Amino acid sequence: SKGEELFTGVVPILVELDGDVNGHKFSVSGEGEGDATYGKLTLKFICTTGKLPVPWPTLVTTLSYGVQCFSRYPDHMKQHDFFKSAMPEGYVQERTIFFKDDGNYKTRAEVKFEGDTLVNRIELKGIDFKEDGNILGHKLEYNYNSHNVYIMADKQKNGIKVNFKIRHNIEDGSVQLADHYQQNTPIGDGPVLLPDNHYLSTQSALSKDPNEKRDHMVLLEFVTAAGITHGMDELYK
């Protein structure tokens, strides 16, 4: 796709999030870079409003799984890469995230190029959380598991539907599940690639910047598309 050509090198990323969870309002600002050749993201996020009212790991899918245009699609799968094909005009990404036995996040993001920078601007609203639950009670460990993110075409809306389940580790050794339902639709009216069913395999590492006084998260992530085999004719070339 034409959009794919915008991702040949390292691309700067800007992320802006405004959130409200159970009436606790907050903002997060992030910057870093993405390299789609390797499916690599390096980002640093800062809570610009003081202390973040929710655990950082609960925002990873909104912040970095928010820029799935940096996923590495192998050559034989490039015609299934909706995310890059929607660029530079970008796409709207909407999600509902259900935390098992707790509340939910609803998010709406616009992901697009502004100049040479890929920008992810998000509004997040969280409701029905227990004040002493795993999320508002800050009981999650500061780490992140690997996940597969399942993608299918949504021809009606000229976009994709995505769903997956995140496993958050809790300090007591148990797990907090979070079910994600995602819809992506193009902002522009140019042609986009509608994929066959496949998935993104994601690995994320969270860390801290020892010199950063503000509440923050440093993230390194690798994302690769998989799940579609080479056609038989490919094998015999």
Rank of each mutant, 00 (worst) to 15 (best):
K2M: 07
G9W: 02
V10E: 04
V10L: 05
I13F: 02
I13V: 06
L14P: 00
V21G: 00
H24R: 12
F26S: 00
S27G: 08
S27C: 13
S29C: 15
D35G: 02
Y38H: 14
Y38D: 09
L41M: 15
L43R: 00
F45S: 02
C47S: 06
T48A: 04
P53L: 03
V54M: 05
P55S: 10
S64A: 02
V67A: 11
F70S: 03
P74S: 08
D75Y: 08
H76Y: 12
H76Q: 05
D81V: 00
K84M: 02
S85P: 03
S85Y: 08
M87R: 01
Y91C: 02
T96S: 10
T96A: 11
F98I: 07
K100R: 10
N104D: 04
K106G: 04
K106A: 10
R108G: 01
A109D: 00
E110V: 14
K112G: 12
F113L: 09
F113C: 06
E114K: 10
G115A: 03
N120S: 13
I122V: 09
K125Q: 13
I127L: 15
I127M: 14
D128V: 03
D128G: 15
D128Y: 12
D132N: 03
N134D: 07
I135T: 04
I135F: 03
E141V: 07
Y142D: 04
Y142H: 07
V149A: 07
V149G: 03
K157M: 13
K157N: 13
I160T: 07
K161N: 13
N163G: 12
I166T: 09
I166S: 12
I166V: 12
I166M: 06
H168Y: 06
I170V: 13
E171V: 09
H180R: 00
Y181F: 12
N184T: 06
N184I: 12
I187F: 08
D196V: 11
L200H: 02
S201T: 14
S201G: 06
P210A: 09
P210T: 11
N211I: 06
N211K: 11
N211T: 14
E212V: 01
E212G: 01
E212K: 00
K213R: 12
H216D: 00
M217V: 03
L220Q: 14
E221G: 01
F222V: 11
G227V: 09
E234D: 04
L235V: 11
L235R: 11
Y236H: 12
